[in-house]
Simulated assay, not measured.
Amino acid sequence: MAETARQIADDLRARISSGELTPGDRVPGEPALVREYGVAKETARRALTLLVDEGLAVRRRGSGTYVREFRPIPRVANKRLAEDGWGAGKSIWDADLGDRQYTVTDLQVYESEPPRQVAKLLELDESELVVVRSRRYVVEGEPVQRATSYLPARDVRESPITQENPGEGGIYGRLADLGLKPVRFTEELRARMPSQEESSLLALSAGTPVVEICRVAFTANGRPIEVNQMLLDAGVYVMRYHLES
């Protein structure tokens, strides 16, 4: 019985997980899969596309499909937002990456009218402005995330938050300096297909989805102080949560 593309992809994924196929190895190509599984060339192509879409493999034009060498990033929401990280002057990215290196590119800091949804989340009046911090994160040469933070301009206009480098502990550290320490966060996640512009921004392979996250930070008295809208390459992230009953 002919195997489906999903079954073939499952087999190839198992070979990757077991170490039979290691990072950088060439995945069996369409002709090899056609012979091994007795399927049509289109079915073999779909199986390889599934691996690429999942972020497990990459295509190299004129060469074939290879096991991706980039290690997934575990995004542990509970840990990365803990005060003992940013409160001690660390970047919240340290919780995700450990000793892996990252760079910030395309950084822009400016004042603007907020998008309608952002104004609603920050409970702002119509005429109020926000300070916008937009940036892209690149890990080991690969763009993995775009993040845009919005903060009420009336609260942060004269602070280091308006500078490219806000200092140790990032903007949460500076909010704490202003008496606006974030103590509670909410995050909403959804997966979707990217626009052409977003695919270009994150250098996504065709068919790769993104994860959209909207985080709101609250002060001790329940006031929303920051909205952060993030766009992640779904192929490089593992979402991890530590929960207690």
Rank of each mutant, 00 (worst) to 15 (best):
M1I: 13
R35D: 14
V67H: 06
E187V: 14
V238L: 11
Y137V: 12
P152E: 09
R190S: 15
V138S: 09
R26K: 10
L231K: 05
V104W: 09
A40W: 11
R60G: 07
Y37N: 00
E164R: 09
S200F: 11
K90W: 13
R154A: 11
P74C: 08
E226I: 05
A217D: 11
E126D: 14
P160M: 12
D10V: 08
R223C: 05
L81A: 02
L33T: 07
A147R: 03
K120W: 08
L124H: 07
E164W: 01
V130F: 02
S17Q: 04
V39R: 05
R157M: 00
V132R: 03
L189S: 14
A203K: 13
S127M: 08
A95C: 11
T22Y: 03
E123H: 04
P182C: 08
R136F: 03
G89R: 13
A47T: 12
V58I: 15
V210Q: 03
L12S: 02
R6H: 11
V216I: 13
D84T: 14
R146M: 02
V139K: 08
P28C: 10
L201P: 02
Y172K: 00
L51I: 05
E83D: 13
I161P: 04
L124F: 08
V139I: 15
N221C: 04
S200L: 14
S245G: 10
E36C: 02
I213P: 05
R100E: 07
L12N: 03
A191F: 11
G167V: 10
L232H: 09
D84K: 14
A203E: 15
V34Y: 07
A217N: 06
P166C: 10
S127N: 10
E30Y: 02
I171F: 00
V138N: 06
V183L: 06
R26Y: 00
P224W: 04
E140L: 07
K120S: 14
R71L: 10
E244W: 00
E36L: 05
L202S: 10
R60E: 15
G29S: 13
R13L: 04
V52F: 06
E69Y: 00
Q229W: 09
M193G: 01
I225W: 04
S195F: 07
I8M: 06
I92H: 11
L178K: 00
Y150T: 01
L204F: 01
E83T: 12
D233A: 12
G167S: 12
L97G: 13
E198Q: 12
K41F: 10
D106I: 05
D233G: 01
V118G: 06
L189H: 14
N228H: 03
S18C: 01
A153N: 08
D99I: 07
W86H: 09
T22W: 01
Y37V: 08
E126S: 13
R190V: 10
A14P: 05
G222N: 07
R61M: 10
T22V: 07
Y150M: 05
D25N: 07
M239D: 14
V58H: 00
K120P: 00
V118K: 04
L189A: 12
Y172R: 11
F70C: 04
G55K: 06
M1H: 10
R223D: 11
A206C: 02
V130E: 03
V130N: 04
E197W: 04
L51W: 01
